[in-house]
Simulated assay, not measured.
Amino acid sequence: MPPSFETLRRLVATQGPVLAPGRPGLRLLLLIALAAAIAGGVHAWRSQPQPEPLAPPQPVSGSLRTAPASPLPPRAVSPFPTPGSGAVLEVTVHVTGKVHRPGVITLPLGSRVTDALQAAGGVRKGTGAGALNLARKLVDGEQIVVGMPGSAAAPIVADPAAVVLDLNAATPQQLEQLPGVGEVLARRIVEYRDGHGGFRAVEQLREVSGIGDRKYAEMKDKVRV
């Protein structure tokens, strides 16, 4: 055995009783060890990983595709003028004379004299329609008189040619009542009106194909803008 180890052994044997902790020291060491074990357990419990909530998914960049809209069903094309087209949809007439409810009556465009008489309550008993053309189409602003005084059945009707038409609101049927205007020319007048944003002056009728100086002279006093 080396001399250094022998010297150490002798020193421990000599100082052994001094280094022994005894019972109080041993208890203290046990308490310290227990406290260290508790502290280590608490630390280990607190060091356990905690579950974290997942972040909400980020929106995908770019435009989202939407389902194609179902095609709309085809719309029926009405033969009558539609609102906003500049055409008159109604006619207003004055029914007077021997009817049950005389007065001003508004009827749909295309109504006839017989419709106006029915709307006025019909002709009074003992009074006939006389010379009235019940099948004639009504003209906006006209007056229908049933039963002139002194004549039981001598009705008169306002002359449609005497009505002044608005070039920007008249229908093709109304334009046909102008002197010298037929179906074709009435359609040309409407096409000119639609293509030029309406009439600004009566003189513009000269620019419509088919209207010469003579026809214009016959029409100019029966139209307005």
Results as ranks from 00 to 15, higher is better:
1 M>I: 14
1 M>E: 08
2 P>D: 14
4 S>H: 10
6 E>R: 14
7 T>F: 15
9 R>F: 11
10 R>Y: 08
11 L>E: 15
12 V>N: 10
15 Q>G: 06
15 Q>R: 13
15 Q>T: 12
18 V>N: 11
19 L>E: 03
21 P>M: 06
23 R>M: 05
25 G>I: 00
26 L>G: 03
29 L>Y: 01
30 L>D: 07
31 L>W: 00
37 A>T: 07
38 I>E: 12
39 A>P: 02
43 H>A: 11
44 A>R: 15
46 R>Y: 06
46 R>D: 10
47 S>I: 08
47 S>F: 15
48 Q>K: 06
50 Q>E: 13
54 L>H: 09
55 A>C: 09
56 P>G: 05
61 S>Y: 10
61 S>K: 12
61 S>E: 09
62 G>W: 14
63 S>Q: 14
65 R>A: 12
67 A>W: 12
67 A>Y: 11
68 P>Y: 09
68 P>C: 10
68 P>N: 07
69 A>C: 12
74 P>E: 15
82 T>L: 15
85 S>W: 05
89 L>E: 10
90 E>P: 04
92 T>V: 13
93 V>M: 03
99 V>T: 02
100 H>K: 07
100 H>T: 07
101 R>C: 08
103 G>M: 03
104 V>W: 07
104 V>Y: 09
106 T>G: 09
110 G>K: 00
112 R>L: 02
112 R>W: 04
114 T>L: 11
114 T>C: 13
117 L>S: 01
118 Q>K: 14
118 Q>I: 12
119 A>P: 02
122 G>N: 04
124 R>G: 05
124 R>N: 10
126 G>P: 04
128 G>C: 05
128 G>K: 05
129 A>E: 07
131 A>Y: 07
132 L>R: 01
132 L>K: 00
133 N>H: 13
133 N>W: 07
133 N>Q: 15
134 L>C: 12
138 L>P: 01
139 V>K: 02
140 D>N: 15
141 G>K: 09
142 E>V: 04
151 S>M: 08
151 S>F: 13
151 S>C: 09
153 A>E: 07
154 A>N: 13
155 P>D: 10
157 V>E: 11
157 V>W: 06
158 A>C: 05
159 D>L: 07
161 A>K: 13
163 V>M: 11
169 A>C: 09
170 A>H: 00
171 T>W: 01
174 Q>E: 15
175 L>S: 04
177 Q>E: 08
178 L>S: 02
180 G>V: 04
180 G>I: 06
182 G>T: 08
182 G>N: 08
183 E>Q: 09
184 V>Y: 06
186 A>M: 06
186 A>F: 03
187 R>A: 15
187 R>Q: 13
188 R>K: 15
189 I>N: 01
190 V>W: 01
190 V>F: 00
191 E>F: 06
192 Y>W: 14
193 R>G: 00
195 G>I: 00
199 F>V: 01
201 A>K: 02
203 E>A: 12
204 Q>R: 08
205 L>A: 03
209 S>D: 11
211 I>Q: 00
215 K>A: 10
215 K>C: 05
216 Y>D: 04
216 Y>L: 14
217 A>L: 14
217 A>D: 09
219 M>K: 00
219 M>D: 00
221 D>K: 12
221 D>C: 07
221 D>F: 04
221 D>T: 12
222 K>C: 11
225 V>N: 04
